[in-house]
């Protein structure tokens, strides 16, 4: 009766970015990799992203940020997820993120950060290998 597990992902745009081309490209690419991708749309607060992740019971949250506010926004989402008991969700980031910020983000719980030019396949494989909640 059980069907194979499908990976569900929330693609989120925290903060005040002006466009979401990267997030859209990735949304389509991960759909083609067989994932169910829920897209939040632009300009979401950390609260809204965490709430959506919980209701949708996603395995992964991917956040894309271009504005430079990632050091505040990404940890805020992780904090909200932990508060709600959803610490078993894999969180990854992308966008314009300086290399020197990555260790800080990882320390806050962001598993990996993918910059511009990363092949979609690489991100999909990373997700498949690192999803924490195996069925």
């Amino acid at each position: 009766m059980t069907e194979e597990k499908r990976i569900r992902m929330l693609m989120a745009k925290p903060g005040l970015d002006g466009h979401d081309r990267g997030a859209r490209v990735l949304t389509l690419g991960l759909r083609d990799e067989g994932m169910e991708v829920i897209y939040t749309g632009l300009r979401q607060s950390p609260d809204k992203i965490a709430q959506a992740a919980i209701q949708e019971d996603v395995d992964v949250v991917g956040m894309s940020c271009l504005s430079g506010a990632h050091n505040y926004l990404f940890p805020a989402v992780l904090e909200k997820l932990r508060e709600s008991g959803a610490e078993d969700v894999l969180v990854i980031g992308g966008g314009i993120i300086p290399k020197e910020d990555i260790p800080f983000l990882q320390e806050k719980g962001v598993s990996a950060v993918f910059g511009p030019g990363t092949p979609i396949k690489e991100i999909a494989d990373y997700i498949r290998e690192n999803v924490k909640r195996k069925a």
Partner: peptide, 27 residues
């Protein structure tokens, strides 16, 4: 691919933080 893009939620943002509303997207 078996994948899906679930985009209805985008239109329902005013309810994201309302505890009285639970939204679930399904493929």
């Amino acid at each position: 691919s078996g994948g899906a893009v679930l985009g209805d939620r985008i239109r329902m943002q005013q309810h994201y933080l309302d505890k009285g509303v639970f939204i679930r997207s399904m493929a």
